[in-house]
């Protein structure tokens, strides 16, 4: 997988390293900005309210 990506990046080793670093940063940014905020409410840590609902959703209020 990673070998395949590396072989398909253009340029010499330096250019490839820089592109790879940029790709990693882009992936981390996407995770922090979009994926994790979406996934986080699915975990139970946000349940701080008493709401009579099942434990699945985090505090939908009264």
């Amino acid at each position: 997988m990673y070998g395949w990506i590396w072989r398909h990046l253009p340029g010499n080793a330096w250019v490839r390293s820089i592109i790879a670093l940029a790709l990693i940063l882009a992936v981390v940014y996407a995770l922090f900005q979009y994926v994790f905020p979406w996934a986080e409410p699915l975990l139970p840590f946000g349940d701080v309210t008493v709401d009579g609902a099942s434990a699945g959703g985090a505090g939908a209020g009264q």
């Binding site: 946000g46 709401d51 985090a58 505090g59």
Partner: peptide, 30 residues
Amino acid sequence: TEVRTLQKGLGHYSGTARPGDTGNFAVAGH
């Protein structure tokens, strides 16, 4: 007390009293 609200601070249970009023001013927090 919705998820997005509680990500920014404490959440007041809608429908409960306001601060200082007779009744119960109920607040949830992480």
